[in-house]
Write a protein that binds this DNA or RNA. Structure first.
Lengths: 149, 149
DNA sequence: TTCAGCATGTCAGGAGACTGACATGTTGGA
DNA sequence: TCCAACATGTCAGTCTCCTGACATGCTGAA
């Protein structure tokens, strides 16, 4: 029989889940005054860095399904934070862009989130920070490599 | 105005979310043959390591609310994987324990999850692994320290 | 040219988790 | 002693996200 996970305090997976949960909770708290959920902020952030992407591309960047992104976009569009092309210039993909109000909201939200990230990593020097980022990326790669269809 | 998050590929928060998502997806896939969700497995794992805890304590260990844990426990109890005391020996807390079937299922699931974790960290030596675990724990501590009510 | 395969947008239904609320049992201070 | 504060269990409602399904538009191979 294979060995189990072992003591939770020594499990990498548990530590990862714990850190992600703590970050998400802190972001939710920090973004609440702006009336933004974490998913909505993520949507704006990706959109700000990649203007004109389709909803499906956006969904992959935010780690949700395109169906969920659809609902998310409807809400943000109604609030006037983004606008979607009425017709598809090519294929079925409808390019999406931030409005001026969307860019302003994003700037504020991004500053808040940057503050949360800084608070989380205040004890890290730049080398340690880059090392942690690289380690996390290595985990993602290792899991996606062996992913079976 | 404060600086924003910056390029997503350089954001620690984004990398953390990505890693946690990848791990969760891999665990879901690996546990599906056993008919267990990640939350159900987490519940069994914590229960295996801390027999007799209350549902509320269990909820904190699994990072869900006690209301969600309540529903989770009902399902696992019906499947005969755990049993709850009918009356509270002290206060209102009802001690919960794994049954023999629960321990068997946990052993199998824990082996599977350990395999996923190993796959994720196959490129890490034991020092790098411990360093990553410590870094993640430091992130959690930094966020919980400044947590306001 | 034709069509099978694929990506996208959208609608409908369901599962899981959360917030709100209330009852119950314990604990520590006035 | 008495009660306010707290923790726990539980019920109800809601929200978010997911899976399933279908229509539409491009693409590459036969």
């Amino acid at each position: 029989m294979t060995q189990g996970v072992g003591d939770l305090d020594r499990s990498i997976g548990y530590a990862l889940k714990q850190a992600a949960t703590a970050l998400r909770t802190a972001m939710e708290t920090a973004l609440r005054p702006l009336g933004l959920t974490v998913s909505q902020y993520s949507c704006l952030e990706v959109l700000g860095q990649r203007p004109g992407v389709s909803a499906s591309e956006l969904a992959r960047g935010v780690f949700v399904t395109r169906q969920s992104m659809h609902a998310l976009l409807l809400g943000l569009e109604e609030r006037g934070l983004l606008e979607r092309a009425a017709a598809a210039p090519h294929g079925r993909a409808l390019p999406t862009q931030l409005t001026a109000a969307g860019r302003a909201t994003l700037a504020e939200a991004s500053g808040i989130v940057a503050g949360v990230e800084r608070r989380m990593t205040v004890a890290f020097d730049s080398a340690a920070l880059e090392r942690l980022r690289a380690d996390l990326a290595a985990c993602v790669n290792a899991l996606s490599d062996h992913a079976e269809p």
